[in-house]
Design a protein around this nucleic acid. Structure first.
Length: 177
DNA sequence: CATCAAAAACTCC
DNA sequence: GGAGTTTTTGATG
């Protein structure tokens, strides 16, 4: 499992890769009220030079990482990425089907928990859908933030509602309070 | 290991 | 406001 960082204007994300693809993506801490990063400033230049970080990054992971970084930056800027890295999100069969469904939501569009529930053939599992979304290890690329509660209500968000509001705003999506 | 109980990013009446 | 559904997770025997 390899871990790499992605610096964006919204902070530093952390991406983790398995042998099969991107496995996890973490939000940087979002402290509201303050603009931009603060103590996050890792020294630019060569990362991890001199630190006990063994095992060089395989070439294929560097490729994936480039794709991840570009895709992430695109979405944060409100543009549909042209390319995605292979995803290797681990989860139950139910969760995988939910995540598959989420990836079909185009940027700038939304879907309700109820709609997702119907589309995976379990119309009454709306509540469980919420759970699956919360378990999503790769936010942003798997657009769990594009799932709203019924009537365009914001619903909840694992990484903090501020992130959800921000992401939706970047995509030009309107929602209720 | 099999079971049970509780909680959850929901919906609908 | 409250009950109904499904899935996951952690405790219990």
């Amino acid at each position: 499992m390899v871990q790499l960082c992605i610096a964006t204007r919204d902070g530093q994300f952390v991406a983790r890769y398995s042998e099969k693809g991107l496995a996890e993506l973490d939000f940087p801490p979002l402290d509201r009220g303050r603009r931009g990063n603060e103590s996050q400033t890792s020294l630019p230049g060569k990362p991890n030079e001199g630190s006990p970080l063994r095992q060089p990054i395989p070439a294929k992971i560097r490729d994936w990482h480039r794709a991840t970084e570009a895709a992430l930056q695109s979405i944060l800027a409100g543009r549909e990425p042209k390319k995605f890295p292979p995803l290797d999100a681990a989860g139950t069969a139910f969760q995988q089907s939910v995540w598959r469904e989420l990836r079909k939501i185009p940027l700038g569009r939304t879907k309700s928990y109820g709609e997702v529930a119907r589309q995976i053939g379990k119309p009454k599992a709306v509540r469980a859908i919420g759970g699956a979304c919360g378990a999503n290890p790769i936010p942003v690329l798997i657009p769990c933030h594009r799932v709203l509660a019924a009537h365009g209500k914001i619903g909840g968000f694992g990484g903090g509602l501020d992130w959800k509001r921000k992401l939706l705003g970047r995509e030009g999506i309107e929602f209720q309070t």
